[in-house]
């Protein structure tokens, strides 16, 4: 057990405490974290660094890879945007309205968390296939969903919905009703109260929900590959391309695509974090 000297002056790793087990708990956690997460992930970083800039660039700038990145990030943006709109409405209905079956509806929001992605994938494909329940309805309208980029978006909407609802919902529950009453007393219409008073307060939560749904969607594999049809240059997502490269024993190719994906996602999350702290300062 490590016990830091309780001197007031100087650097202290931890504050003194009578509770035992710090060394054991932290030591075990760090060892486990290092073995399971840090060493394997740094292996990926090391292998992509070992590729060298020109090889790395050659793989990343390959038109097929670029197309897949475009699809993965583009479809994820669209799906997250759709989820922000509908997820906020669902959260509002769950928080503000009382109706029979509300508890069931609330529990159902978490279905995409609980349902294995492969199951979601084949279910959505069967629904949206040209002769499926929904596909057959859309067919006369000339809308094809399965085996098109639209199918990718549909799968990503399914996957991302709970992230938005579960981020926005608790913040909505905390809203102080007095603020709305004040707005109403001062003559604001309900629409004005919602758009000028409530939504700005919810903005940070909505942005967070968007970011989480987006981050999850970019890496999503199981639910997408069935409905996408996986045509190179058309409906091939980046995670699938990694799998294809691995199946060809092209470890360098798989590593480079993975590194690019991780870099772009981390950069986007950073931007969204900055946006969030900005909106918190402005509206918080």
């Amino acid at each position: 057990m490590t016990t830091a000297p309780a001197t007031a002056a100087g650097w202290q790793f931890r504050k003194p405490s009578v509770i035992p087990g710090f060394g054991l708990a932290l030591g075990f956690s760090l060892a486990y974290l290092t073995l399971i997460i840090l060493i394997p992930l740094s292996g990926l970083a090391w292998r992509s660094a070992a590729l060298g800039w020109s090889d790395f660039w050659a793989i990343a700038a390959d038109p097929r890879v670029l197309k897949s990145l475009q699809l993965s990030f583009g479809a994820s943006l669209v799906a997250a945007a759709v989820n922000v709109v509908f997820g906020t409405v669902v959260a509002w209905v769950l928080v503000r309205y009382r109706f029979p079956g509300r508890r069931i509806l609330d529990a159902m929001v978490d279905l995409p968390f609980a349902l294995p992605t492969a199951v979601a994938g084949i279910a959505l494909t069967t629904l949206y296939a040209p002769r499926g329940w929904i596909g057959a309805l859309l067919m006369p309208l000339g809308i094809k969903v399965a085996y098109t980029p639209l199918g990718v978006v549909i799968a990503l909407i399914f996957i991302g919905l709970p992230f938005v609802v579960r981020t926005v919902q608790p913040v909505m529950e905390e809203i102080d009703k007095e603020v709305e009453e004040a707005a109403a007393t001062l003559g604001a219409s309900r629409f004005q109260t919602i758009t000028r008073i409530l939504l700005p307060g919810l903005a940070p939560a909505i942005v967070t929900g968007f970011a989480l749904a987006f981050a999850r969607a970019v890496g999503e594999y199981g639910s997408v590959i069935f409905i996408a049809g996986n045509l190179p240059f058309k409906t091939e997502i980046s995670p699938l391309l990694i799998v294809i490269k691995l199946e060809e024993y092209n470890y360098a190719g798989a590593t480079a695509i993975a590194a690019v994906m991780l870099l772009i996602s981390f950069a986007m999350l950073l931007v969204i974090n900055l946006l969030q702290s900005w909106s918190r300062k402005r509206y918080g």
């Binding site: 970019v218 890496g219 594999y221 991780l262």
Partner: peptide, 23 residues
């Protein structure tokens, strides 16, 4: 440390498998 614990949530499942293939 909390950020590191959350890390696997922001990594694609495919990449989570890939790191072990590379290792």
């Amino acid at each position: 440390l909390i950020t590191l614990i959350d890390l696997p949530f922001s990594v694609s499942p495919v990449i989570s498998g890939l790191v072990y293939v590379l290792l």
